[in-house]
Write a protein that binds this DNA or RNA. Structure first.
Length: 207
DNA sequence: GTATGGATCTTCT
DNA sequence: GAAGATCCATACA
């Protein structure tokens, strides 16, 4: 069993944390997966919620590092972030995709993809639908059972656990690319994906 | 394969 | 009242 990442890991520059989170394990209740896609957000650029300053919504972002920032997107999806940088700096890493490793049955039920909807195996290891269980920030929170009530809970000793890379992922190479799904400052190369992973929400454009 | 629109809620103006 | 760090179904090529 790998151990959780500590506060010093999250207190660093947010882009470094985003890169280093690729290959780490995310766990909630009986479900878990390896992080294969992240994005960094910082108060100095307009795509970040903290750009507008300290409000009730963004208070978590400006708080202590190592805390979960969960908010509702487009009225439907809960998105999970890890608060970074020292307290007082508004920055966080959005967890965008996982490669599921444990509790796949529970994930399929939560996501509403029963066996009858599976299209069949497209590869030697995973079915088409399993590849898409956590291939997006709104999907993985459903699959892991993470909701708005988890906002502001600690990643250091709370219900959501993020642990350092398991041995099999020790040599994972994160690839930098443009951020996606946003209209402001999307050109920043602050999205990181695990090289070659089939579980990301979108393959990187850059080499 | 790409393109489009609807669902739905929290926050801030 | 409008905007938004999304997902899915549907339509068409």
């Amino acid at each position: 069993m790998t151990r959780r990442l500590g506060a010093p890991f999250y207190r660093r520059p947010v882009v470094e944390v985003a890169r280093d989170l690729v290959g780490c394990e995310l766990r909630h209740e009986e479900t878990a997966g390896i992080i294969v896609e992240t994005e960094a957000y910082h108060e100095t650029e307009p795509a970040c919620h903290a750009y507008v300053g300290l409000t009730r919504r963004t208070a978590t972002l400006f708080g202590a590092p190592g805390v979960a920032y969960v908010y509702r997107s487009y009225g439907i999806h809960a998105l999970l972030n890890a608060v970074c940088e020292p307290e007082g700096v508004g920055a966080a890493v959005l967890i965008r995709a996982l490669e599921p490793t444990e509790g796949l049955d529970v994930m399929r039920v939560r996501r509403g993809v029963g066996a009858e909807r599976q299209v069949g195996n497209r590869g030697p290891h995973a079915s088409h639908s399993d590849l898409q269980l956590c291939s997006g920030p709104g999907k993985l929170t459903v699959a892991l059972g993470i909701e708005l009530v988890d906002n502001a809970t600690s990643l250091l000793d709370g219900p959501i656990r993020i642990s350092r890379r398991p041995p099999a992922w020790r040599d994972t190479v994160p690839v930098a690319d443009r951020r996606i799904g946003i209209t402001k400052a999307a050109e920043l190369p602050w999205r990181f994906t695990a090289a070659g992973s089939r579980y990301v929400s979108r393959r990187p454009v850059l080499a």
